[in-house]
């Protein structure tokens, strides 16, 4: 039986993938026009309809290429390459408009119906079996397109997260010049190994730039200090000392002091309960004392 069908197809009709490929090339213009009216294209290309039609042509060309290569179910088909970036931008645009991944997927799926209708109308002479096979092939191809859109937008999402992570690390460690020869960094949030690496590098760089004799690490905004975090802090303290400056750790709560004691670290580190006290200490060591000038209130802090 299968032999009979194969023979019949080869003599009467082309292979479905070839038929679909030829159809997509032939009906490129009509497809692009119909897709331009679908929500996905309409919502993304708002400047002009021509823009949407042009984008639709590119998608039709890519699909024709993929169908021609016979790899209709392969998301890695080279035919998709020219439109990957465009599809990513389209999905990203819909994502920004507040659509969920499922909603975007449904909008891509909406492109299938007009294409299949056009295909069926295009094959009036073919056997119903051949029409069904071609429609199935086109449906599979449109399903692959849907996967490609989802895949590229996920990859794009991951790349965005990576970029933001770098920005966050840099934004979260502002080293501030507090006085001539005194720099400080207020640490906020969890101090993991990657983060403390960035803190250490930026702090040491600014010690050199400012020729700072004192570096204040304020940990008021660090929620928990476990042994690992304390270890990171101590490494920073030790590195600052090796460079010839002195580290002061401020914002230490009693519980945190206990952790450091339990670790048994013998590094001499000056600690103060508040950033203001740490600054007063550093200024005093630099030979400047803070005195109150209000009447009757003179005295060192």
């Amino acid at each position: 039986m299968p032999e009979h069908h194969t023979t019949a197809r080869n003599t009467e009709n082309p292979v479905p993938t070839q038929e679909v490929g030829a159809f997509l090339g032939r009906r490129r213009e009509q497809l692009a026009q119909r897709w331009a009216d679908e929500p996905l294209f309409r919502a993304v290309f708002t400047v002009s309809r021509d823009e949407a039609v042009e984008a639709g042509r590119a998608v039709a060309d890519a699909l024709a290429q993929v169908a021609g290569s016979g790899r209709v179910e392969d998301t890695d088909s080279p035919g998709f390459t020219p439109v990957r970036e465009q599809l990513t931008r389209m999905a990203a645009s819909r994502g920004r408009a507040g659509l969920t991944a499922a909603q975007i997927s449904r909008e891509v799926d909406a492109l299938r119906r007009p294409a299949v209708d056009l295909l069926v109308a295009d094959l009036p002479q073919a056997s119903s079996e051949h029409v069904r096979e071609c429609a199935t092939t086109l449906t599979a191809l449109m399903g692959t397109l849907r996967l490609v859109v989802m895949e590229t937008s996920l990859t794009e999402g991951q790349a965005l997260i990576d970029r933001q992570q770098v920005q966050l690390l840099e934004v979260a460690t502002p080293v501030i010049r507090l006085w001539d020869g005194i720099v400080g960094v207020p640490l906020i949030g969890t101090l993991d190994s990657a983060r403390s690496q960035v803190v250490m590098e930026t702090l040491l760089e600014s010690v050199v730039d400012q020729q700072a004799r004192f570096a204040i690490l304020d940990i008021t905004g660090v929620p928990t200090v476990d042994s690992l975090v304390a270890q990171h802090l101590m490494k920073t303290v030790a590195a600052v000392r090796l460079m010839g400056a002195e580290c002061v750790v401020s914002g230490i709560r009693p519980a945190i002091a206990q952790t450091i004691v339990h670790l048994g670290l013998d590094l001499p580190v000056v600690t103060r309960s508040s950033l203001a006290d740490a600054l007063a200490y550093a200024l005093h060591r630099l030979g400047a004392d803070i005195v109150s000038v209000t009447p009757g209130g003179a005295g060192t802090r």
Binding site: L204, E205, V207, V208, K235, A238, A239, L242, M243, G244
Partner: peptide, 13 residues
Amino acid sequence: VAGMRPAVAITLV
């Protein structure tokens, strides 16, 4: 000992 570079200090620690 004077002028240790930041990268050297980080590495030593």
